[in-house]
């Protein structure tokens, strides 16, 4: 019996890896560009459909498609900021929210128009089916474990980029005081666009692992956005490792509730989120 719950919790932790992948990009948008991007989930779904096109229409292998997808999404993020979002980035609360909200609806219905409402997923061969036995009766799937590993590596890499590089110093400067950054000659729009390129690259990673682990359809974006949002609020903004903690908490809550009654899974995640903002509105892992 206890093995059952160890497995359930372990699966929750691994699910947290996927949720962290959803959330990293949103955390960067919020942290650097101060943009709560309502279309963040839809960007992930858009990236997934690009993978669908590359693998199915062009017949490319998944790994190669992914290598193409990363720069494509990075470029898309860059263009999105330079072409559209920069006009609303410093215009207060409503314009950026409403523009990304409109974008979200456009992406969803554009995908619906182009691909229909069928659910999709990617096949990853043995990766999806192999499991490892950690101890007597305790198993982890290779794919969920890889997802978590990728999330950890990605967070580590982005943390090093932001806190350990010259480019990262620019990102932090622009995030901390955009007006001062402009005053000393930083090209704030370009830095924002590069940040959105980074966001785009992370959506490519999120799209790959999401499509390997679960079904998606053109309207799956809002669900991903809500999870990403819950993760960054739980994790506390301004702390990349908090994302991982928030994601794991959400994953475990869903996994445990799902083991009790599968229909409770999503609800339990939301309830844990609401409970925690009631008790600690600054997030669980906010520094200071």
């Amino acid at each position: 019996m206890s093995e059952f719950y160890i497995n359930v919790v372990l699966q929750g932790v691994l699910l947290g890896g996927l949720y962290a992948l959803f959330a990293i990009g949103l955390a960067l948008s919020v942290g650097i560009v101060r943009l709560v991007n309502i279309a963040h989930g839809d960007l992930i779904i858009l990236a997934s459909y690009v993978l669908v096109v590359l693998t199915q229409s062009f017949g490319l292998p998944l790994w190669l498609s992914f290598l193409i997808l990363v720069p494509l999404m990075a470029g898309f993020g860059y263009v999105l900021q330079q072409g559209l979002l920069r006009h609303v980035t410093d215009k207060g609360m409503l314009p950026p929210l409403l523009v990304t909200f409109g974008l979200s609806v456009i992406i969803q219905n554009g995908l619906l128009e182009g691909f229909g409402a069928d659910t999709r997923s990617f096949s990853g061969g043995a990766l999806q089916t192999s499991t490892w036995q950690l101890a007597e009766g305790i198993y982890v799937g290779a794919l969920p474990a890889l997802t978590l590993l990728v999330a950890v590596v990605l967070i580590f890499a982005i943390d090093r980029l932001i806190y350990g590089s010259h480019f990262g110093a620019r990102l932090r400067a622009v995030s901390e005081a955009p007006a001062t950054a402009a005053l000393v000659g930083l090209r704030v729009n370009r830095v924002h666009a590069l940040a959105l390129a980074l966001v785009g690259a992370t959506t490519a990673v999120a799209a790959l692992f999401m499509g390997l682990r679960m079904n998606f359809d053109p309207l799956s974006g809002p669900g991903r956005l809500i999870i990403a949002f819950e993760v960054i609020v739980l994790g506390g903004l301004g702390n990349l490792w908090g994302i991982l903690a928030g994601a794991i908490l959400l994953g475990v809550a869903q996994s445990v509730a799902g083991a009790i009654d599968v229909r409770l899974q999503v609800l339990a995640g939301h309830l844990v989120f609401l409970l925690i903002i009631l008790l600690r509105p600054q997030g669980l892992f906010q520094r200071s």
Partner: peptide, 22 residues
């Protein structure tokens, strides 16, 4: 600028380096 307007969370080196870069 008036009021110095450094980036308080950036290190001294990072603040200086931004000047060099621009």
């Amino acid at each position: 600028p008036e009021g110095r307007r450094l980036f308080p969370s950036l290190t001294v080196d990072e603040n200086l380096r931004l000047g060099w870069e621009v």
